[in-house]
Nucleic acid binder design. Structure first.
Lengths: 112, 112
DNA sequence: AAATAATGTCGTATGTTTGCGTCATTAAAC
DNA sequence: GTTTAATGACGCAAACATACGACATTATTT
């Protein structure tokens, strides 16, 4: 295994972004952070049906890719979205799908 | 485990879409299908650094979500993009990220 | 300094994905 | 009707992800 490396870098980066979005908990975290105007800390876990440690783990996945930041403030940590990095991934995503959306030779017409 | 079910349906659907995009081989397949105007069959495997069986597996993941179609033609199968379904997932994706992109309270300003 | 609170790290169990070889099936070519 | 070709289904091993409790760390509060 470990065959992913044989693919080109752009595809790997996009795949990594998609992977981080591939769990509802992480999507929920992003959503929560965008709603709670004050970058509220680990009481994110209060709002999710998962244990605190599991949430912490999902948070660090998001952090690893740079989609969020954590700012220590005393004994708490304030997490918040990193919009610029999110926007940059989204741009890559759109660029990838542009030729795919406009592909004439899709077989819509041949199917019921 | 099996805790994903506790999240709302929209998030689960989006996560499922992201999951299917979360492997470079599957992205490469989508890309290949958009380029090769004639919906060419399993010689997709010729173009990927993976065995035929593995590629076939990735193809069925894509098919399961409805991103591609396979049309049997004799002993071969012609795969092709299902643009409408792809477009519909992309729309959901954009809708999800709209409030996230526009979130004022991201902490860009607080970071280097 | 001791107690409390918030959080991250580690280990571990269970579940899922990836990758592949072998086999079965189907259809065309001979 | 055999052979050949293309493909999917099955089963397995290795790798990875998910979920959590127990422990360690740090910073406030007392």
């Amino acid at each position: 295994m470990i065959k992913k490396d044989r693919f080109n870098n752009d595809l790997q980066q996009l795949a990594a972004f998609a992977k981080v979005l591939a769990h509802p908990a992480r999507l929920a975290i992003l959503q929560f952070l965008s709603q709670s105007k004050t970058c509220i800390s680990g009481d994110i876990s209060e709002h999710l049906p998962l244990s605190r440690t599991t949430v912490s783990q999902h948070l660090s996945e998001l952090k690893k890719l740079g989609l969020i930041h954590g700012e220590i403030e005393g004994t708490k940590v304030n997490y918040c979205l990193c919009s610029s990095s999110i926007a940059s991934f989204l741009t890559k995503m759109e660029a990838f799908f542009e030729p795919i959306k406009n592909c004439e030779m899709s077989c819509e017409t041949n199917h019921e």
